[in-house]
Amino acid sequence: MSALRRLTNGYALLIRLYPADFRAEFGAEMAAVFAATLHKSHRAGLVPLAATCLRELIDFPANLLREHASSLRKEFFVETRQLLLDPRRASFFGGLGFGLGFALLILFRTLLNPTNATLLTDFGASLARETLLFVLVGVLGGALIGFSSGSAGLIRRLALAGGLGCGLAGGLGTISLYLLYASAAKNAPDQFLSPWLNSSAVGMMTIAIGGLTGTVMGSVLRRGKRTAYLALAGGLGFGAAHIASQLTSNILYNLWMRTPFYQLWMIPLGLAAAITGLVGGAALGWAMGQQKEYGMNAPEKSF
């Protein structure tokens, strides 16, 4: 096989790295133009041939990245007219996804932190763990809201949006809690943070989870001004969910500790957390799917 043939074949392999739609539209043309350019350079001598190959190698990575970024943008930013989210189904699956996510969060948090290190004693690991766990919650919740539509594309987009929103809120919330605990420990080293203050701080973090997830989902789906509505619904939904969870967690915990399975104390906590996800996720799903003034299936208004 001649050197030119090898180079042409090598370039054909590089073209395969482009996104499928780009490759289908321009791949054959690119290969033909590269072959023609290569032959012309070869006739001019070795230096022009080397310059042609070098130019391609230098430009290729940036163009490849640009095309993949463009392809991802197209994938995630869709026209909302195409969406068909039924409010009841979206609400059910949103509640299920986020409920399951929050329950798993408690389980994994226990498994990933066997020494029960606190935020103050092991901030770095706590931040990484909490961010990762909240990303997983968001991915699960978003994916299930998307699942209610039956669209694979929407599952991917909402999973990404959920992961991003929840992960961001989880990370920022963990940092905020650390600052609060550190400040409290500095001011009164011998006293525990009051349960009310602690619950309020966690509540704010939960509201942020709903608000940010709604914002990112609305942005990904190009909801325009209606993104604020989703953020509000998410924030209020998760805020109300936190109150419901707080009211039930003590009852569930005390009841569980009287059973022979008291060593599995994470189960009632997981159930209480699941209530947060259930109510908050259902509110977010309902807001995404409801069809009246702000609904996705309503005729698009100019905004």
């Binding site: 780009f22 321009f26 690119m30 350019t37 391609e56 290729f60 163009n63 490849l64 095309e67």
Partner: peptide, 27 residues
């Protein structure tokens, strides 16, 4: 291919497009 050659001529040899730049720009 003709566009790539033409660009080189029009720019006095200063702008030489790689195939990937040409086609990502055309797209």
């Amino acid at each position: 291919y003709a566009i790539a050659k033409d660009v080189q001529v029009l720019s006095g040899g200063r702008v030489v497009l790689s195939v990937s730049t040409l086609y990502t720009t055309l797209k």
